[in-house]
């Protein structure tokens, strides 16, 4: 299978500071890939590069089949992005948010209408479709933000700390949406500070001071470091940071 994300010796420097130090990894279609690291390890820098928002200093990077140096605009069309900080318009309704983002991604009126209907159905939001976002619970917003991010059927979706502050049941419903999307072939690239969520991923990488120090399935990493949880794997690696 051809990777959806291919990174070879990626380096990003800001002046003398090396934020990404020769990263090499591949992510495959339909994979749920956890991209972990402490605050300041360099994750956001990498994600910005993968989304075509920032150019690498050196190295080879392709996303959804496009080279980040030459085709960053095409990359943006073929990916979805969701973060806890930036997501949706609070003073638009659920349906209006779908329409707005559908338009941004260049979907036709018909496509917008059909996909909005299908997603409202899937999320069980039909009754609430005209509610302004300000009035709906945080957990709903997160599910909605995810659905908006995959509305244009991207090959990869980037989830940057998507689940802060929600209850365990809503978090599980959210992960169920992610599993469904991955099952249908979308690649999921997710960052989180919560190590129980790392256990939902097929493979995870752990970044320390700009380098990827470990990359494997949660089970194999736990065996490799002879510990019982991903939290212990993470703490062992991240405590060694400068």
């Amino acid at each position: 299978m051809k990777p959806v994300i291919e990174v070879e010796n990626l380096v990003k420097k800001f002046g003398n500071f090396v934020a990404n130090d020769s990263l090499t990894f591949s992510v495959f279609p339909g994979e749920i890939f956890g991209f972990l690291g402490a605050n300041g390890a360099g994750k956001t820098t990498t994600i910005k590069i993968l989304c075509g928002l920032s150019a690498p200093t050196s190295g080879k990077v392709s996303v959804a089949g496009y080279d980040v140096y030459r085709h960053s605009e095409l990359i943006k069309k073929n990916i979805g992005y969701m973060s806890q900080k930036f997501s949706l318009y609070e003073d638009l309704s659920i349906t209006e948010n779908f329409q707005f983002y559908g338009g941004i991604y260049g979907l036709s009126r018909n496509e917008i209408r059909e996909r909005t209907k299908a997603l409202l159905n899937r999320l069980d939001f039909l009754k609430a479709q005209n509610e302004v976002l300000r009035n709906i619970p945080q957990g709903w917003k997160q599910k909605l933000a995810f659905s908006v991010a995959v509305m244009h059927q991207p090959k990869v979706v980037f989830l940057d700390e998507p689940t802060g502050g929600v209850d365990p049941i809503t978090r599980r419903q959210f992960w169920e949406l992610i599993y469904e999307q991955a099952h249908n072939g979308t690649t999921i690239f997710v960052t989180t500070h919560y190590m129980d969520e790392a256990e939902y991923c097929g493979r995870v990488s752990i970044m320390v001071d700009g380098k990827i120090e470990a990359l494997d399935s949660p089970e194999k990493l736990k065996n490799q470091f002879a510990v019982n949880s991903m939290n212990d794997v993470f703490v062992k690696l991240a405590r060694a940071a400068k």
């Binding site: 402490a38 700390e161 802060g164 502050g165 500070h193 190590m195 993470f234 703490v235 405590r239």
Partner: peptide
């Protein structure tokens, strides 16, 4: 009030 939201696992510990 939610002092550890958005903070990594090492700092939380």
């Amino acid at each position: 009030d939610e002092p550890t939201t958005g903070v990594d696992a090492v700092s939380r510990g």
